[in-house]
């Protein structure tokens, strides 16, 4: 096992009195594919969202490459409402907005595809290169940054070629077939030069054949870009096929974690997914 890329420590997320994620700790090691699974409403996307800065956890710490990236503790009226573990209150507060987190090297895709719909495929990828541009506003606006611009365009084009999307480069993103839109979203995320890729239900709405292709694609991308992948998924075939380790959430609590084979035979996981017979 290599170094920690991502580590969550005692993360709790409450919306008012409702506990969405309860005292959740996990880690993703370098060059792993780790999946987070669980029934609907288990808190998977919430957990995802405080890694990406969309939410702040009510309490807990998130480390990225062993550096504290996000930390929070209950404050204000949350102090009274807080239902998490009182021994694990974190002292520090560290806040990051989603764009700062992306700059650190975490890229993500969305559960419901969020492309820049009216823009072309090429522009979609090119936009991801904007944050690395060093030229100031005045220089950029007067087009005096042509070297940088050419470099950005070259990198974006290379990426599209690698992802077999080059043929679509001048098409409007929303005109692509569904599977290609998913594909483009991943390509766009890769354009930010991440070290950690977060995939939020990448196989949602795909048929079995497309899902198989996606599994192969994720594995290949991981190798090509030397990535660590952390994903949320419902398709068990995909998860069992590609993950190195799996975490299972149910009603905000982690009920199991381990190798795919162990998870498959774990009673609590089966219960969470299939339900328990009454009087059993």
């Amino acid at each position: 096992m290599g170094n920690n890329v991502l580590r969550l420590e005692h993360c709790t997320m409450q919306f008012g009195g409702v506990v969405a994620v309860d005292n959740f700790s996990m880690e993703v090691n370098e060059h792993e594919i780790v999946a987070l699974i669980g029934p609907n409403g288990a808190g998977k996307t919430t957990a995802f969202n405080f890694v990406t800065g969309v939410y702040e956890p009510t309490n807990g710490k998130v480390f990225f490459h062993d550096e504290l990236m996000v930390a929070n503790h209950p404050a204000g009226k949350m102090k009274k409402l807080y239902k998490g573990d009182p021994d694990q209150i974190c002292e520090k507060i560290v806040r990051k907005t989603p764009d700062q987190i992306t700059k650190l090297g975490i890229a993500r895709t969305f559960q419901n595809i969020r492309l820049f719909k009216a823009l072309t495929v090429f522009e979609n990828v090119l936009i991801a290169k904007h944050m690395h541009a060093k030229s100031g506003l005045l220089k950029t606006a007067m087009h005096l940054n042509y070297r940088e611009e050419i470099q950005m365009r070259k990198e974006a084009m290379e990426l599209l070629e690698m992802q077999n999307l080059a043929a679509y480069r001048n098409d409007i993103a929303s005109s692509l077939p569904y599977g290609q839109q998913r594909h483009l979203e991943i390509a766009r995320a890769l354009a930010t030069n991440p070290t950690l890729l977060l995939l939020d239900e990448p196989a949602a709405g795909m048929n079995p054949q497309e899902t198989d292709e996606l599994a192969a694609f994720i594995k290949k991308t991981k190798e090509d870009f030397n990535l660590t992948v952390f994903l949320i998924e419902h398709h068990m075939d995909l998860v069992m096929g590609i993950s190195d380790r799996i975490y299972v959430l149910d009603f905000g609590k982690m009920i199991a974690h381990g190798l795919p084979a162990d998870i498959q035979n774990n009673d609590r996981v089966i219960q969470a997914y299939l339900g328990v017979e009454e009087n059993a």
């Binding site: 907005t97 989603p98 820049f116 823009l119 944050m131 995320a189 930010t192």
Partner: peptide, 16 residues
Amino acid sequence: KAIREDETAAEAMGIN
């Protein structure tokens, strides 16, 4: 334009 199209996605692309 990215902000116009989708703020959440634009932010995820590192745009402040």
